[in-house]
Design a protein around this nucleic acid. Structure first.
Lengths: 205, 205
DNA sequence: GCATGAGGTTAACGTCATTAACCTCTAGCA
DNA sequence: TGCTAGAGGTTAATGACGTTAACCTCATGC
């Protein structure tokens, strides 16, 4: 009987795939072991606990997610960047619902200051922030715009993945509608701000 | 030793309170039984399973949530209604994070056509729809606006409750900023739509 | 070749949810 | 008033988990 040659990485990857297939709440060590053709305790030679495994899956997912957003925004600006980044996020969540849920749950509570989850989250935020820079918002508004964006995109993707939208209207249409809405609103802020600035005086800072 | 005089309702209510305190993922039959001064199996005289209990908690939560939104919007219109409804939702989620999570998880999958969760969800949607009516949107846009609103509010509340926002900027400010943003955008849609209609001709539908 | 340890296995334990078997108040009726 | 049935508890037992301990066995480096 040949050895399975498992490694922490291969276990994590198999876990990530499985969690996407069966969902975060149905995931179990037994199922993963079975999937890998091994008995449950064998997994503990490569990871220290289920919590550890889930955390690794989350870190991996978050890194991939950050890459996807970065790549989508790369080379685009303004409305284009927003649309591409948003679509990339939605696609990721739809294709990896289990991993996204895992990442979402883990992102809120890093295990320590050297948790790889932290830089991954920062990369995601940095991408959104870079994208927003194309709208030339007042720096005091940036954080609010960022939070709104995350809220809207997270909320939409999450509800769509959970089947929370009824099917009587196109979800694709709703998504692009929302993105257009956000885009127009962001442009308006800039427009009115510059208008005001131009009209009154010019104190950028 | 006096009897505990439990009922399905009292068990559900105690469960709802407990799930808010310790969180959805930490909830267990044993803890609830202990809280009620009873052994675990006693609970099964009043509910059929943990899934049943969770479902009851979700239904109860969703009904309360629907009431809160309705009451907040009641008697207000336009921006006021939006702000009040949104604030009511955020408050509910912050005060009942466990129940909201439970409701959210259950809302996607009703157990049958007579599931009390269904009318409760409909009531929530109806409230938001009523609120949106104040913006006189084109009927084809209503569903998109509704989904956007749910996404943004759900995403924001959920992330705030999970501690997903850093503390370096006021979350309150971000929330009202977001609401203002949404309000302005919705007003603009109406404005441009009527402007177009007035300018060109008057062909509604 | 051979020993040693990485990487499996089986066995056993504690915690859950759940069910079965049993007990005991208490309400309702003769 | 006293009896009885069943509502509403209890303890004990079962099976699915996660996890750990004890053990076994390749396969690799000397």
């Amino acid at each position: 009987m040949p050895r399975a040659r498992l490694t922490p990485l291969s276990v994590t990857e198999a876990g990530a795939a499985l969690i996407d297939e069966i969902g975060f709440e149905n995931f179990s060590m037994g199922l993963l072991a079975e999937r890998l053709g091994v008995k449950t305790p064998a997994l503990y030679k490569h990871i220290t606990s289920q919590a550890d495994l889930v955390h690794r899956i989350a870190a991996r997912a978050l890194a991939e997610f950050a890459d996807a957003i970065r790549d989508a925004i790369q080379g685009r600006a303004g409305s284009d960047a927003l649309a591409a980044g948003a679509q990339a996020m939605r696609t990721y969540v739809l294709e990896h619902p289990g991993q996204y849920a895992t990442a979402d749950a883990a992102a809120a509570r890093p295990t320590g200051p050297d948790d790889p989850i932290i830089p991954a989250v920062e990369r995601v935020v940095a991408s959104w922030a870079a994208m927003l820079r194309g709208y030339h918002l007042d720096s005091s508004q940036e954080i609010h715009a960022l939070r709104m964006l995350r809220s809207a995109l997270h909320g939409f993707s999450t509800q769509e993945a959970a089947g929370g939208f009824q099917i009587d209207a196109s979800i694709d249409d709703s998504f692009t509608w929302m993105i257009n809405f956000l885009d127009r609103g962001l442009q308006d802020i800039t427009a009115t701000a510059t208008a005001t600035t131009t009209t009154t005086s010019s104190s950028a800072r």
